[in-house]
Write a protein that binds this DNA or RNA. Sequence first.
DNA 1: CCCAACGTAGACAGGTCTGTCTGGTAAAGT
DNA 2: ACTTTACCAGACAGACCTGTCTACGTTGGG
Lengths: 181, 181
Amino acid sequence: MKDARRRILDTATRLFYTEGVHTVGIDRIIAEAGVAKATFYHHFKAKDLLVCAYLTEQYDLQRIALPALPGEGRAKLETVFARLAELGTGPGFRGCPFLNAAAEFADPAHPVRAIVDDYRVWFTGFMSGLLTEAGHPSPEPTAHQLLLLRDGVAVSGALDTPEQVRASALASLRSLLDAPA
Amino acid sequence: MKDARRRILDTATRLFYTEGVHTVGIDRIIAEAGVAKATFYHHFKAKDLLVCAYLTEQYDLQRIALPALPGEGRAKLETVFARLAELGTGPGFRGCPFLNAAAEFADPAHPVRAIVDDYRVWFTGFMSGLLTEAGHPSPEPTAHQLLLLRDGVAVSGALDTPEQVRASALASLRSLLDAPA
DNA sequence: CCCAACGTAGACAGGTCTGTCTGGTAAAGT
DNA sequence: ACTTTACCAGACAGACCTGTCTACGTTGGG
């Protein structure tokens, strides 16, 4: 029982992701994390800040994990989308933490939405870079199309059958990349 | 002040869509609809049933509106996606009611999720029909790719700039339709 | 004419939520 | 040895939520 903060954030990540932010209360988190309420409010001033910490960590993790995938240029694009489809469709998985959170926070001015926006800007830039690396003729517009595809994969992955999503995602990716200028 | 039920459902539709289902309470709905609480529970046995009524109505509306759009085959596909992009990106709009609702109800067994699933099945079939009509060589797999695109449009429409989404959506649609078998 | 259906107004119970507070323990640095 | 920091246990306030209930008014069909 070393780091209470770590335990809180791990528990919150699991519960927020699998059950939603609004449906999971503080009492549930502190109970499952084995932590006192005072300890919780010592580390996180309010629930909203815990939500932000959760999303920020997910952002950091993806920002490290996706660029670290093997391959270069176009091959890496395929690897990235295969990984994304895999992530959102596993058993017990529930799509994309950023999109789910954004759907729960309707106010665009909420701090949670700022993190989601940051992630989307980063992802688009990441796509644009890989497209440039692959010698694509129009990286910028195509990057936005890949963002659309990413969103589709994340959402469908949570609602439809994994195989269907994986196959459709890769087929779509190839069509988008091979489209004539 | 004729139809209280109609007023309740209209108010609920507006509030649920723009602010989310969980964040809007019964008290708020009855206040803005100008209706007594007893009247509300006379027409809807529980809040969940009101949510289902809201989504079912949206489903019915789309099932009527989308096929009624002008054009045939491929031209109609373009019209449909232009309309979808338009729908989710207007001022005060907040993406797709079905996806937002699904994100708020994590339990796949909840009745709300059944309605969302119904809608997705219908939409895929609708796409498949239009593709067949357009003489597309592989309607079924392509229909699933268009479902992915639809989800992307709905999500991005709520989070990014409308022009960007509209342009990307149409470009993606053309790439997917023109892809070599 | 009357009664059933629909409507309003609002109190109330029982639960859940966030966030604060008291009180006490344990370990670690200085 | 002392003090700071982190931690646990749990009561508590205040707000909000859903859903039930009483009590009363209006209206239209049989």
